Simulated assay, not measured.
Amino acid sequence: MPINATEAYDDGNIFARILRGEIPSTRVYEDEQTLAINDINPLAPTHILVIPKGAYVSWDDFSARGSDEEIAAFVRAVGKIAREAGLVESGYRLLANAGLNAGQEVPHLHVHIFAGRPLGPMLAR
């Protein structure tokens, strides 16, 4: 069920549990600030979830409360992951849902990287 982005952080959410090692995942990248995993229900041939390790609900929460170091590391990690996966030449899409109307389902900021086929328009008309 989609969430309200102003909701308090829930440390029992699936990404918090993955970050603590309670749930297995296929890790494709990790540094001090960021974890990237393959999505278990991919919506494209390449579907990677990039997750900051801090307890942030959404992009607006992260941009308001995250340190400059965390924000820079996260943004740089997204680009590095795309480059290392060989996605730059053919193209890729980044998606970060924030809040109920956007369809955010997990109350932990995460960016989807989609690639591997033509992805069509950004939003259905």
Results as ranks from 00 to 15, higher is better:
M1V: 00
M1F: 00
I3M: 03
I3Q: 02
N4T: 06
T6L: 07
E7G: 09
E7K: 12
Y9M: 13
Y9Q: 13
D11A: 15
N13W: 11
A16P: 14
L19Q: 08
I23A: 14
I23W: 13
P24L: 15
P24E: 15
V28M: 03
E30T: 09
Q33G: 00
T34D: 02
N38K: 11
D39N: 09
T46S: 04
L49P: 02
V50T: 00
G54H: 08
A55Y: 13
A55M: 13
Y56P: 11
Y56R: 08
S58E: 04
D60L: 09
D61F: 09
F62T: 07
S63C: 14
R65S: 12
E69Y: 02
E69K: 03
E70I: 00
A72C: 05
A73R: 06
V78F: 02
V78I: 14
G79V: 08
G79A: 12
K80D: 07
I81F: 01
R83Y: 08
E84I: 04
A85N: 03
A85G: 01
G86P: 03
G86Q: 03
V88D: 05
S90N: 11
R93Q: 10
A96L: 12
N97E: 00
A98G: 09
A98Y: 03
G99F: 00
N101Y: 03
N101E: 07
A102F: 01
G103Q: 00
V106A: 03
V106I: 13
L109M: 14
V111L: 08
H112C: 03
F114M: 11
A115T: 05
G116P: 01
G116M: 02
G120V: 12
M122K: 15
M122Y: 14
